[in-house]
């Protein structure tokens, strides 16, 4: 399977033109930015608050925009055309993810700028965030593939967004209910954990386990996406 960047870029360009005229999707991007601006004015005390905004960016920009992009292709009956074209699975999924990937990256950087977030080790947190974006895009693609329309996708994303944005809030209850400790292994909590460690001066040596766990989740979700996509290809 050869990967032609030209085809993926064509899909990316098309999505960019498409979304820029689609206010329904493009305005959701503003939500984390507004939140970040507000927090930036009031001042941020803890790492958790930074990551409340970052998690919202992941779910609302990466996952939601991605699911809307995929679901719209299905709703408008255009995904079949792409699947029958010479573009391969990797080219289609890669091209379809480019826009949400770049969008998330830009919003993330802007949010960090608004809130004046200065991590102890920028490189580690960037690597972990980039991998996280891929994970959330995977979630979005999965939702897009499993729903039939943009409407359905935007309803289906709600519990997911809620789950990933607010699960960090259960942390204080962990000592009381040990079962909640399992939640610690979720990629969003691992990212926060990592950020906390970095604030206390941790380096690569201490953070590889968190990055590996996030990477593991990403690999699992990506292979899941490819499997579902190939099955959907049969159904058209």
């Amino acid at each position: 399977m050869t990967f032609s960047l030209k085809r993926s870029l064509a899909i990316f360009r098309k999505d960019y033109k498409d979304v820029s005229k689609n206010l329904y999707v493009s305005t959701t991007v503003l939500m984390p930015l507004i939140l970040a601006a507000v927090y930036g004015r009031t001042g941020v005390e803890t790492v958790e608050v930074y990551f409340l905004v970052f998690n919202l960016t992941f779910t609302m920009v990466a996952a939601y925009v991605q699911s809307a992009l995929i679901a719209e292709e299905k709703e408008k009956n255009t995904l079949r055309g792409l699947m029958l074209s010479p573009a391969t699975t990797a080219e289609i999924l890669g091209g379809k993810s480019m826009l949400s990937f770049l969008g998330t990256l830009i919003v993330l950087v802007m949010c960090a700028f608004f809130m004046e977030y200065q991590p102890g080790n920028l490189l580690i947190i960037s690597v972990a965030s980039l991998i996280s974006i891929v994970f959330y895009i995977g979630i979005g693609t999965l939702i897009g593939l499993l729903t039939r329309s943009v409407m359905e996708a935007s309803v289906a994303i709600l519990p997911v967004a809620f789950f990933f944005s607010f699960v960090p809030l259960v942390k204080p209850f962990m000592d009381e209910y040990p079962i909640l400790k399992a939640v610690n292994f979720f990629p969003n909590l691992q990212l926060i954990e990592l950020a906390n460690q970095i604030e206390t001066g941790a380096g690569w040596g201490d953070s590889w386990s968190a990055i590996l766990i996030i990477l593991g989740w990403t690999v699992v979700i990506t292979s899941f996406v490819v499997a579902v996509y190939n099955r959907k290809m049969v159904d058209h």
Binding site: K14, D18, K21, N22, K76, N77, T78
Partner: peptide
Amino acid sequence: FLEDGLYERL
């Protein structure tokens, strides 16, 4: 196809 979509915003 008889029924096939186009990217309507392009």
